[in-house]
Design a protein around this nucleic acid. Structure first.
Length: 569
DNA sequence: GCCGTTTTCGGCCCGACTGTTTTCAGTCG
C-alpha cells in the first residue's frame, strides 16, 4: 500500500506550489488528488497495475503518470526538484495559523529566514516590520501562531469536543436574544476527532450575542470578533467559532457550517449546474432568494434526498442522494443489545444484576458481560475458578430477569504469541468470546496480523474487539494488515467490533466501510465499565452511520434468537 | 492540473474578518 506515500508527496507538492505562487487551481488539483488517493479503498499499486488510475476522481493523465513513477521507482523527480527550491523548515512555516504562503515567501526571500526559531527571534525583535504589509499586530499574530504550533493544535477526541461544546451551548442558551442554536462542523458529522467547534445561532441581535460570546468565562482568547462571526480559544484550548444568521438563512448556514469542505464544494458546483447559487444565506436564482430556512428545503430544491450529516464527506453520498439510493442507515433504536460490558468480576464497577437492570431499561433483549481474562492482571483478569463463579451468578440472575438475557462472555487476551488466554475447554463454557489485544502493541505488522488472524481461526472466537488498538490522543493504532484480518474474520464468521468508548471508536468509519466491502459483519460494544456508559452506544452508532452501515450489517441489531444462532457458528 | 448533457478551452464554492492602507490582499473555514 503506497496510498499514504502518494498522498503525502502530492500534499507537499501543493504546499511548495503555494509558496511559488502558482495557479491556485493547480494547487487544489494536487490537494484533491492527495485526498482522493488517501481515502481510496483499493491499493493504489493495484490500480496502477490495472492501468485504471484515471478512473479515480481528480486523477488525470498527468497525475496518473506521476503516481506510476512513485509506485515503480519509489520517487518522483518533479517532487525532488521542487523540494530543492525551499528549505524544509520554510515549508513547515505554512503550518503556523495566520501565516500563509504569501507572507512566508516574503519573509524567506527578503529576510532569508529559514527556520521557525529564527522567525520567532525576528518577530520578537521587530525585524519583521521592515517588510511591507507587516506591522506590530501581524508580528504579534505570528508569535501567537508559533506558540499554537508548538502546543500542537491537534485534533481532540470526539467526546472531549462534545463536552466543551455542551458547556458553550449551556452558556449561550442563557442568552435570551438567541432564537435557535445548533452545532455544526465535524462535531455534527460525528467525526472521531475534532479540530474546532462550530456553533450556529439565529438572532436578531447579532452584536449582543457576539459580545456575550467573546466575553464568556469559558473563553481564554479572542481570535476574531466580527458582526456575524467570531472565533475564540476556549479555556480547554479548543477553537470555537460562532456564527449568527437570520432565521431565513438557518438551514443554508447549517448546511454550509456542517460541511465537510469537500461536500460543500461538490454541492455548490451541483447547484451552479442547476442554475442556482448556494451560500450560507440561502439558495438563490440570479439574485433572488429561493429558500434557506431548513436544510431539507435546499436538498429538495436540488432534487435530492436529505443527506444525514454523518455521510457528508463527498464519498458518493451526493450521487446516491440524487438517485434516491442513500443507504437506510442504522439507528440507535435498531440496536437490541450490548455485546461488550465489564462487571465487578474484572475491572468494572457494576454487578451483574445492575447491568441486567440497566440494559433492560434501555429496552435491550440481551447484554453480554465480557470480563477480562486471567493474564490481564491490571484489569482484574479472571482466573478459571472465578469464571465458574461468574457463570453461576449469571445463571441465577437470568432466572430473575424475564425480559433480558445476560450472555456469558469474556474479553479474552490474544497473547503475544497469538494464543488465547484460556484453554479451549474453558472457552466452550461461554456464550460469547470477544478476543482482543492488550499487550505487545509494538510488535511488527506481521506478528500483530498473525495474532489477530489466529484468534479469528479459533472456533470459539466470535468477535475481535477494538481491532486496531487506537486510543485517540494517547496511542496510535498498532501496525496491522487489516485486509488479512478482514479475510480471516469473514471466512470464520467472526465479527469485528466498533468499540463505542469515546477514546477508542475503533474500528473507525473508513475501516468500517472497508470491512463491509470485504463481507465482514460488525458488532457494537460500549466497553462499559460502569452502567452509565451503556449510553455510549450512541457514539458507536454514529461511527456505523459514518461507515454507511445498515442494521443488517450489525450483529446486535438482530433479535436474541438470531444472535444465539450466530454465536453457535 | 482536472473536467465536460451549455464548454476540449476556460472555468474551477463563496464569504467573513484582520491588518494595513485608504480600497484591498491575505488568510481561513
Amino acid at each position: 500500500m503506497k496510498n499514504k506515500e502518494v498522498s503525502r508527496i502530492f500534499r507537499e507538492i501543493a504546499q511548495i506550489l503555494e509558496l511559488k505562487g502558482e495557479n491556485p487551481f493547480r494547487i487544489r488539483a494536487y490537494e484533491k488528488a492527495a485526498q482522493n488517493v488517501e481515502s481510496l479503498e483499493k491499493d493504489i499499486e493495484v490500480v496502477a497495475k490495472e492501468d485504471k488510475l484515471t478512473s479515480i476522481a481528480g486523477i488525470g493523465v498527468d497525475l496518473a503518470g506521476k503516481i506510476k513513477e512513485i509506485v515503480s521507482t519509489g520517487k518522483l523527480k518533479q517532487y525532488q526538484a521542487l523540494k530543492k527550491e525551499f528549505p524544509a523548515d520554510v515549508i513547515k512555516m505554512l503550518d503556523i495559523p495566520g501565516l500563509g504562503p504569501k507572507t512566508v515567501k516574503l519573509i524567506y526571500e527578503k529576510l532569508k529566514i529559514t527556520t521557525i526559531k529564527k522567525l520567532q527571534d525576528a518577530a520578537k525583535s521587530g525585524r519583521l516590520q521592515t517588510l511591507e504589509g507587516i506591522r506590530e499586530k501581524t508580528e504579534e499574530n505570528i508569535l501567537r501562531g508559533i506558540e499554537l504550533v508548538k502546543k500542537g493544535s491537534e485534533r481532540v477526541p470526539l467526546s472531549f469536543a462534545l463536552d466543551v461544546s455542551a458547556e458553550f451551548l449551556a452558556e449561550l442558551r442563557k442568552c435570551k436574544e438567541i432564537d435557535k442554536i445548533e452545532v455544526g462542523g465535524s462535531l455534527r458529522r460525528r467525526k472521531d476527532t475534532i479540530r474546532d467547534i462550530d456553533i450556529l445561532v439565529v438572532s436578531k441581535r447579532a452584536d449582543t450575542v457576539m459580545n456575550k460570546f467573546v466575553n464568556s468565562k469559558l473563553v481564554k482568547e479572542v481570535l476574531a470578533h466580527g458582526k456575524t462571526k467570531s472565533s475564540v480559544i476556549s479555556k480547554d484550548n479548543m477553537q470555537v467559532d460562532l456564527r449568527v444568521v437570520e432565521n431565513k438563512s438557518f438551514g443554508s448556514a447549517l448546511l454550509y457550517f456542517t460541511g465537510s469542505k469537500d461536500f460543500n464544494v461538490k454541492f455548490r458546483q451541483l447547484a451552479i449546474k442547476k442554475g442556482y447559487k448556494v451560500n450560507e444565506y440561502g439558495a438563490f436564482k440570479k439574485e433572488k432568494y429561493i429558500c434557506g430556512k431548513t436544510e431539507e428545503d435546499i436538498f429538495s430544491l436540488m432534487k435530492m434526498a436529505y443527506i444525514p450529516p454523518e455521510l457528508r464527506e463527498n464519498r458518493g453520498e451526493i450521487e446516491a442522494a440524487q438517485k434516491n439510493k442513500l443507504p437506510r442507515l442504522v439507528k440507535l433504536k435498531d440496536i437490541k443489545g450490548d455485546l461488550h460490558v465489564h462487571s465487578k468480576y474484572s475491572d468494572g464497577t457494576s454487578s451483574i444484576e445492575e447491568i441486567a437492570a440497566q440494559a433492560q431499561l434501555k429496552g435491550y433483549e440481551y447484554v453480554a458481560v465480557t470480563d477480562h481474562s486471567q493474564s490481564l492482571k491490571v484489569a482484574g483478569g479472571m482466573s478459571k475458578e472465578r469464571v465458574y463463579k461468574k457463570i453461576d451468578e449469571i445463571k441465577k440472575v437470568n432466572k430473575k430477569f424475564k425480559k433480558i438475557k445476560i450472555l456469558i462472555g469474556t474479553e479474552i487476551d490474544i497473547l503475544s504469541d497469538g494464543s488465547l488466554d484460556y484453554p479451549q475447554k474453558l472457552l466452550a463454557e461461554f456464550d460469547l468470546v470477544v478476543a482482543a489485544i492488550h499487550s505487545g502493541f509494538k510488535q511488527s505488522k506481521a506478528q500483530i496480523t498473525k495474532r489477530l488472524v489466529s484468534a479469528c481461526n479459533n472456533k470459539y472466537v466470535n468477535i475481535i474487539a477494538h481491532p486496531t488498538g487506537v486510543l485517540w490522543g494517547t496511542r496510535d493504532p498498532y501496525d496491522v494488515d487489516l485486509e488479512e484480518v478482514f479475510k480471516a474474520a469473514r471466512d470464520n464468521e467472526v465479527a469485528l467490533e466498533i468499540n463505542c468508548h469515546p477514546q477508542r471508536l475503533d474500528l473507525n468509519d473508513v475501516n468500517v466501510m472497508k470491512a463491509k466491502a470485504n463481507g465482514v459483519k460488525l458488532t457494537l460494544g460500549t466497553d462499559a465499565h460502569i452502567i452509565d456508559q451503556l449510553s455510549l452506544m450512541e457514539l458507536g452508532v454514529d461511527v456505523a452511520r459514518r461507515g454507511w452501515l445498515l442494521k443488517e450489517d450489525i450483529i446486535n441489531s438482530m433479535p436474541l434468537d438470531k444472535v444465539l444462532k450466530w454465536l453457535k457458528k
